[in-house]
């Protein structure tokens, strides 16, 4: 997991807890964060404005991080999403000190039971399984439960012959679960292979940030790999690389645009076009089209 991202995240959690912000989740009954500043151009917007613009900065196009349910609202047809395995929570597999507390705080901050949310839905009327990693839950890191839920989403898609769309946003493996987290890379990748052998379509959508063990497992195994503009995508974190090579990284290194140019992405898709593009991909992969075609 990337040092820089974790630090930022920890500071962010501390700040948000201290201020008692609900971070846009109405069920907290606390004062809501009404304004947000664009980290790219420093313009301040109301949350309403940002929600209306799908969390994209109206002045510079910066793509803000997006929670799982906001993402689902953006992609899935209204009311079509049926969440699965929502109640699954993580256990402290290594008896790691304070991990229970970290989990508890993550639940409060994110309003989720774990970092991965998935379910059945339709996108532009095409049935699919959609999964989203939420970076507000311990950096969207993949421990045993996230690995298990991702695997369940793959297996559900396989059983029901549905296309699978996963939006990744993760700092990598969940540190507090040690080598058990590492094994989730194997578990999710193997499940993805089985799904692929059955002809399943996997659209992997990389969002800011997708790093470490998530990038080096299922997320890189998409039939089609999309990314949002300006996302940080890489195996090693930028700080670790800078420390290793002893120099500053060039501007734009490990961004979506960089990966596209190096041949690791099919397309970069603006958030405003994401639903249409995914809908189009699902349309082009409908099995019945090929099966019933004749002139």
């Amino acid at each position: 997991m990337d040092t820089f991202e974790i630090k930022k995240h920890k500071i962010w959690i501390m700040k948000s807890l201290r201020k008692g912000l609900g971070l846009g989740r109405p069920d907290h009954g606390q004062e809501r964060n009404m304004f947000e500043k664009c980290p790219s151009c420093n313009t301040v917007f109301s949350r309403k404005e940002l929600e209306d613009s799908h969390h994209v900065c109206p002045s510079c196009g910066y793509h803000f991080r997006m929670g799982a349910h906001d993402r689902i609202r953006l992609i899935c047809d209204p009311g079509s999403f049926e969440e699965m395995a929502a109640g699954m929570t993580s256990a402290n597999v290594l008896d790691f000190p304070d991990y229970r507390q970290v989990l508890k705080e993550a639940k409060q901050v994110s309003g989720l039971n774990e970092a991965y949310v998935f379910g059945r839905c339709t996108v532009r009327s095409y049935a699919a399984v959609t999964g989203v990693l939420d970076s507000s839950f311990i950096m969207g890191s993949m421990g045993a439960t996230v690995g298990e839920k991702i695997t369940l989403s793959i297996e559900y898609a396989q059983q029901h012959q549905l296309p699978l769309i996963i939006f990744s946003a993760s700092g990598g493996a969940r540190m507090q679960e040690g080598t058990v987290s590492l094994m989730q890379m194997a578990k999710t990748s193997a499940a993805m292979r089985r799904f692929s052998h059955q002809g399943g379509l996997f659209v992997s959508c990389l969002t800011n940030p997708t790093t470490g063990g998530v990038l080096a497992s299922y997320a890189s195994l998409g039939d089609i790999i999309l990314a949002e503009p300006g996302a940080l995508i890489g195996f090693a974190g930028p700080r670790v690389i800078e420390q290793t090579i002893g120099q500053k990284l060039p501007e734009g290194f490990q961004t979506s645009e960089y990966l596209l140019e190096h041949g690791f992405l099919d397309r970069i898709v603006e958030r405003s076009e994401l639903r249409d593009i995914i809908g189009q991909i699902l349309k082009l992969h409908e099995r019945r089209r090929s099966a019933s075609w004749n002139l």
Binding site: A219, F235, I241, Q254, H262
Partner: peptide, 11 residues
């Protein structure tokens, strides 16, 4: 963890 490794798709 290096620039070449990332450019050529370590993940």
């Amino acid at each position: 963890p290096g620039t070449g490794a990332e450019a050529r798709g370590q993940g």
